[in-house]
């Protein structure tokens, strides 16, 4: 089966499940590139960090586009697991993609209430 290059774009803080979806494709021998747009990062639980590391182990990469990659998601050596990519670079990289998946909902325009902000 041909290995496909798949970009999964996450624009909304509630839809970082796109990373798990990317991992699902990586274990099916595809190249997964989940991209978190404009700092809509998840909470970096052990589960989430392990998934991000696993995507990288499977020759994919989780990217941050439009925000500094967080230093709360690191490997055992303390190096950041999420790489930074500019919007321009992302566009150029995606020209070569087999699939581009804008995942879930667009970015919210209002601030989340305390009940779901963390």
């Amino acid at each position: 089966m041909e290995s496909l290059k798949v970009y999964i774009l996450v624009a909304n803080r509630m839809y970082n499940d796109g990373i798990r979806s990317g991992l699902g494709l990586a274990v099916e021998n595809h190249y997964a590139f989940p991209v978190i747009m404009n700092g809509e990062f998840p909470s970096f639980s052990t589960y989430m960090s392990e998934n991000i590391a696993w995507v990288k182990d499977m020759e994919g990469q989780v990217y941050s586009c439009g925000a500094v990659a967080p230093d709360t998601c690191v490997d055992e050596e303390g190096d950041k697991l999420i790489a930074e990519i500019s919007l321009q670079e992302l566009g150029e990289a995606m020209r070569d993609a087999d699939f581009i998946i804008p995942y879930g909902l667009p970015k919210q325009t209002n601030e989340p209430p305390p009940a779901c902000a963390e």
């Binding site: 089966m1 496909l4 798949v6 798990r20 979806s21 991992l23 699902g24 494709l25 274990v27 099916e28 595809h30 087999d98 699939f99 998946i101 804008p102 995942y103």
Partner: peptide, 18 residues
């Protein structure tokens, strides 16, 4: 199913939309 079904969508379908 699991996310593997999404993999099947990519493999089996000539066209794709999200």
């Amino acid at each position: 199913r699991t996310q593997a079904f999404h993999g099947a969508l990519l493999d089996e379908c000539g066209k794709y939309i999200v």
